[in-house]
């Protein structure tokens, strides 16, 4: 049993390394496809993906932080990767949505006639420069956390430990 397992694991490792090499060599020649996501809070995020990647792959591979996006990991059992396209792009997509995809979209917030699930849109060269809107999963506009975090960064950038000192001084003051 354990020998079998060992063989399986080593085989898998070899295979995946081979695959990795293959991927690396092709990706160098291949043109990357650009996609822009317009988030509900007004933020624009541009990322790149390879041909054959889904929009969900683009978000996952680039570590983009979209709240709750792709909860079922692209298995057509939720509607959290809902994106809205413009009519032209929607019509141009080679694959029309399947019944199963439409079933899930029916549960999405802010459903439109040009809505699709990001996990079902597969990138190809002619889609380069694609722009999609990502509707909010929550009904209120959540723009304050982004603002909040960006303030942190500048503060930290200038005086890395200053705020901690100030904090401690006030803490002592307040508690005494």
């Amino acid at each position: 049993m354990s020998i079998k397992l060992f063989k399986y694991v080593t085989n898998f490792c070899i295979k995946s390394r081979v695959l990795m090499k293959y991927n690396l060599s092709t990706s160098n020649n291949e043109k990357l496809i650009k996609v822009t996501f317009n988030k509900a809070n007004g933020e624009k995020v541009t990322a790149e993906g390879k041909k054959g990647d889904s929009l969900l792959d683009v978000i996952v591979n680039n570590n983009l932080d979209f709240d709750g996006f792709g909860a079922c990991e692209g298995t057509l059992t939720c509607s959290t990767c809902h994106v809205i396209l413009n009519q032209k792009n929607y019509d141009e997509l080679p694959e029309k949505p399947s019944d199963e995809e439409l079933d899930m979209l029916d549960l999405a917030y802010n459903l439109t006639d040009t809505s699709r699930l990001g996990c079902q849109i597969v990138l190809e060269e002619k889609l380069d420069g694609l722009e999609v809107n990502v509707p909010a999963t929550v009904n209120d506009a959540r723009n304050w956390p982004t603002f909040h975090i960006s303030r942190h960064k500048t503060f930290y950038g200038f005086f890395p430990s200053c705020n901690i000192i100030v904090y401690t001084v006030f803490d002592i003051f307040y508690s005494s």
Partner: peptide, 9 residues
């Protein structure tokens, strides 16, 4: 999805 949205809110 509704539970997620509710929790985020």
């Amino acid at each position: 999805v509704s539970t997620m949205s509710n929790a985020f809110q």
